[in-house]
């Protein structure tokens, strides 16, 4: 666990995350505009609007422009014959080891945003935990899923 895992996830992940973030943030902006209108109509002190706008601008900056790139930079994974090794997390860097024989099933998953960039995420489940490698190229994700499920087939009779 001294060295980080070798492989990075797809670079397009940043774009996909940005779009997802924009979708969420637009909800915040709608709320802000709604508040602004209400304050204008009911003649409440307008510094409330100022603060709301400020918060929205700051969150847009962070969630759309800063975090996706940082997140991508931190995300790494590596698949060994007997182990899965992943690293992620901006504030709290987490490195996880999952032995192949503990893997119960592997799924690939693709939402509309990921689909647009031809990306997919891989979810690995053990009897106690689930781990997700987000945003790999479609082909890579499929291949990875098949590889892990083939490697995980080594069965141990006891749980």
């Amino acid at each position: 666990m001294r060295e980080p895992p070798k492989n990075r996830i797809a670079l397009d992940a940043i774009k996909a995350w940005k779009i997802t973030a924009i979708i969420y943030i637009s909800g915040l902006w709608l709320l802000t505009i709604g508040t602004g209108v209400a304050i204008y109509i009911f003649d409440f002190p307008y510094w409330v609007t100022m603060i709301a706008v400020l918060i929205s601008i700051l969150s847009t900056y962070f969630f759309v422009f800063v975090l996706p790139a940082l997140r991508w930079k931190r995300w790494r994974y590596e698949i060994f014959e007997q182990e899965i090794y992943i690293q992620y997390g901006i504030w709290v860097m987490t490195r996880t080891l999952v032995p192949m024989i503990r893997v119960q099933h592997v799924d690939t998953k693709q939402g509309p945003v990921l689909k647009k960039f031809r990306l997919a995420s891989v979810t690995i489940s053990t009897a106690a935990t689930t781990h997700e490698i987000p945003a790999l190229n479609e082909e890579d994700a499929g291949e990875l899923r098949d590889r892990i499920s083939a490697l995980a087939r080594v069965d141990e009779d006891d749980v």
Binding site: V92, T94, T96, T126, A128, T129, V159
Partner: peptide
């Protein structure tokens, strides 16, 4: 063989002090 996954977690302050949190998961 009972440990399903092992994690090392470090937040930014930890990284500077060479500290880390250990998290192991078993079937509950």
């Amino acid at each position: 063989k009972r440990i399903q996954a092992l994690e090392k977690k470090q937040h930014i302050l930890h990284q500077k002090e060479d500290l880390a949190t250990l998290d192991i998961a078993i079937i509950g």
